[in-house]
Structure formats: C-alpha cells, structure tokens
C-alpha cells in the first residue's frame, strides 16, 4: 500500500470515528443512573477500553488542534503549558501506561493506527520519540504532524510545537528508547538465528 493510500485510509478512519462519537452522544433517550448497579471487570479489559476511548476522544477533538484552538489560545503561556503537561499529557500517558513494560505491551498489541497515535502522545513528552517514529511509515515526528496538517502555520504555531516538545523527563524517555532498541536488536538477532541468518 502506498503512502497516499495509507493516509487516505487514516483520514477516512478519523472522520468516521469523530462523526460516530458526536452522533451517538447527541442522540438517544434519557437514562436513569443507579450508582449501585455494578459489574466486575478485569483491570486489563478496563484499561484496554480506556485506551480505545481515549483514542476515539482524541480523534474527535482533532487532538491538539482542538485543545489549541478552543482553549489554549485564550490562556497565558504559563497556563497553556500547565494544561498540556498536567491535564493532557499526563492523563493520556497514564491511560496508556506509565511503565516501560506497559508501554511496550501496548505497542506490541496495538494496531498500526493506535500505535501511531500512541507515538504521537509520547512525542508530546519526548523528542526521543522522533527516533521511534523513524521506524514507522511517517519517518519522523515532523512528518507525522504534517500528515495531520498540524504543521500548518494558520492552525499551529512554532511556539506551540516548542511548548509541546518541552519536556522534563527526556533522559528517562531516552533510557526507555535505548531499552526498546536493545530489545529490538536482541529480537533481530534471535530471528536471524531462528531463520539461519546468523553466522
């Protein structure tokens, strides 16, 4: 599948998810809530649903563009930064998983669409993710943003990108990236051995 076809499919998926969530949320009958009505759910299932919901919600808002246009332009830089760091990045990352093991688990189990969104989330907190994005068909964070029209100066300012890319834990992320790279190299060696490629 070519790059244009992949982008076309992704765009189509984004539009469909957004329209579906909005239409569903604005229709139907009133419901009475009973706080005592409960069911048991595994933590894993709950987390999986939360991630899926987070992705749908992210798409519906136009992700960062929605945040930027609707709220952040009205805020001071200090408040905007606080919102991104606290209300957005941290909660999203918490939903995905905040340990290297959980993130690696998510990356392994996610489809390409979700995986790329995850990488986008992570990129908010880490320039190191750019290195990870090189291994996707986007090639880099810049290309990822461009593919979603987030590089448009009319929609997005370079200051905003700078804010987004400011992060305090780059060393930790870099460490995680190094670990993932090592694991990847180990897997490659194992594959080479398995398929007779190793000498």
């Amino acid at each position: 599948m070519g790059e244009d076809e992949k982008q076309e499919l992704l765009d189509k998926e984004l539009v469909e998810i957004e329209a579906k969530l909005a239409a569903r949320s604005m229709s139907g009958s009133p419901s009475r809530r009973n706080p005592n009505r409960k069911m048991k759910m595994t933590y894993r299932d709950y987390r999986k649903r939360l991630i899926a919901f987070g992705v749908s919600i992210s798409v519906a808002t136009g992700l960062l563009i929605g945040l930027y246009n609707s709220h952040i332009r009205k805020m001071s830089d200090e408040n905007a930064l606080k919102m991104i760091r606290n209300d957005f990045k941290e909660s999203v990352m918490a939903n995905i998983g905040d340990s290297p093991e959980e993130r690696a688990d998510y990356l392994r189990s996610a489809g390409e669409f979700n995986r790329n969104l995850y990488l986008m989330y992570d990129a908010i907190g880490s320039k190191a993710t750019n290195d990870v994005l090189e291994h996707t068909y986007y090639g880099s964070l810049d290309e990822y943003l461009k593919a979603h029209h987030w590089d448009n100066p009319n929609e997005w300012s370079s200051d905003m990108l700078t804010i987004l890319l400011v992060q305090s834990d780059i060393n930790q992320k870099q460490s995680e990236l190094n670990q993932m790279t090592e694991e990847h190299q180990t897997d490659m060696k194992a594959d080479a051995t398995t398929y007779g490629g190793a000498k």
Partner: peptide, 18 residues
C-alpha cells in the same frame, strides 16, 4: 478485578469508564 458502574441507554448496557 475492579467494580465498574453500568448504565443502560436505549436498552443497551454501558460501562461508565470515566
């Protein structure tokens, strides 16, 4: 396992995720 609250909307059950 965790307890999650259930709400019925238009005859279908939904979990309150948040």
């Amino acid at each position: 396992m965790r307890d999650v609250e259930v709400m019925t909307v238009d005859q279908k059950d939904y979990i309150i995720m948040k």
